[in-house]
Amino acid sequence: MPVLLPTSLSEATQMLSDTPGATLLAGGTDLMVEVNFNHRKPNDVIALRHVPELSQWSLNKVAGTVFIGSAVPYKHMESGELAQLVPALAQAARTVGSPQIRAAGSIGGNLGTCSPAGDSLPVLSALDAIVHLASVNTTRDVPVSDFMVGPKRNSREQNEIILGVTLPIRNGRQGYAKVGVRNAMVISVASACFALQDGSPRIALGSVGPTVLRCPHAEQFLSQNLAADGSVSDDVAKEFGRLVSQESKPIDDHRSTAVYRRHAVGVLAQRLVQRGVQS
């Protein structure tokens, strides 16, 4: 059986239905690493490169949301209109791998792999993105928090294709920060996305837990301590950082230590909450 190359979403879902267990290939930046390193031997592959529905994004001004197809490369999020609509996503996209990776990799890959180090995932989490899944004749919408169920596990069914995500357009300040031990092309040691959306503060963390984490206590504390103009005092920022650290669940691995990650994610939270605000 060859690599299947559907040219529409309906064709793709039909192929997936006809070929249970087929491997879905989007940008290839995760899958091919596994193949090259002998960790995976694909038999049936459905390549989504030519499915236009997955490679588009669209703005819904009425709803105040943006839909981003699962195969839209990160490159297109880094600058331009999308970057204006969701700046934190632009910042996250810019930290993904190298320029070559950002030309191929996409949110569908981050969601499909569901690594806690997936760079775009804290943004999706902080903004309560909706994940759209398509199978033959049906679609299903899942809040991203329900989609990411565990380390490298998600709630996609075998017959489903990740169509894309819907995110709210920014209506408050937002930002993303990622710690890596190199100034470019690095896997996250700790990352965080902060957003003030609809007046409520949200923070989501990457690489400091089995999945991307939200920090409800810290968010609650901050919502009670935001100044009327949305600004944050140094003391409040510091306490927010402390609470975020507390809510993180990092581990030791070859990339860093739990102690450092817990510390770093608190510093990121403290800085993010004041970023872009004149103090």
């Binding site: 690599v3 290939l25 930046t29 091919m32 193949v35 592959v45 390549a47 070559q100 990776i101 191929a104």
Partner: peptide
């Protein structure tokens, strides 16, 4: 026209 890593492109795709 996109600059990519050919090691991560499945040739048959």
């Amino acid at each position: 026209g996109e600059s990519v890593c050919s090691c991560l492109v499945m040739a048959a795709s």
